[in-house]
Nucleic acid binder design. Sequence first.
DNA 1: CTATCTGCAAAGTGTTTGCAGGGAT
DNA 2: ATCCCTGCAAACACTTTGCAGATAG
Lengths: 152, 152
Amino acid sequence: VVLMFVDICNLVAYDKIMTVDTIIKSLRENKKRITPGRRKIVELFCRNTSPLSVRFLVSKTKLNKTSVYRELALLDKLGIVQDVDFADRKKRYELKDLEHHHHLVCIKCKHVDDIKLTESLNFEEKRIEKLKKFRVLKHNLEFFGYCQSCGS
Amino acid sequence: VVLMFVDICNLVAYDKIMTVDTIIKSLRENKKRITPGRRKIVELFCRNTSPLSVRFLVSKTKLNKTSVYRELALLDKLGIVQDVDFADRKKRYELKDLEHHHHLVCIKCKHVDDIKLTESLNFEEKRIEKLKKFRVLKHNLEFFGYCQSCGS
DNA sequence: CTATCTGCAAAGTGTTTGCAGGGAT
DNA sequence: ATCCCTGCAAACACTTTGCAGATAG
């Protein structure tokens, strides 16, 4: 079983469908205006694969935090970004069309790397549906530890 | 592979080591006093397998929320409870010696059930250590969806 | 022109801290 | 009697809301 797992294993490589242009188009279709602040936020999401925090976006865009929260809520509603939870009670979002993956969060330097799991979780979800009659809609899975540079 | 997985599968059945008595003993060993509020909190943890929130503990114990937060921090420091994250920015704790498991959170009725995964995540963690040279210390994994009663 | 967007201030929610009084041992 | 434990109020950090003024289309 171990060998089969290792065999299927697969590094993260994203197939992004969403580019700045497609997102802008989607915004226009929804009668949203393309303001400088909004464009900046979209660009930041397209340039970064790790989840972005409100603090980060405020510092990069110089927008008011209120506007950033509102922008994130909008992009979430339009299905452009999705929230990610690092258990630190802060909102974070990443592009929604990234291939399904999980995060490796270094508890020392806070660096975030991505990892694509094998099929394990699909098996688990199917098992849960069968055993518990629980209909799984989503899951949160993040790994915490030391990255290569910080690893003792 | 599917069959093997299903084969190993395993329902949750806890082997608790921590009882009210062992926890009280551990508190005494650490020169902590056994006050009525503290005893109540310990009893609540021993009676419930689902993670307990501050609000729940305050309502059950009639303690001040400050005291509850302090008590949780203490029990956490002594290794009696551990925090659990439901991505709702609220602190939750459960007994630490429950067999390693995960949670099925119903997004409608908020009921929390437990699920013990097969070995999948161990394989994944080993893979991560090898591929990414990332030393995994812990992970957060919670499933969200509809429980049997609330299901579709 | 006008509906959407923005910044500011203020309120809301959950958590933490400081301090003085109260209680377990 | 000692020192830990407790409640209260106030501070904190993050998020949300209301509103008046600014601006993309």
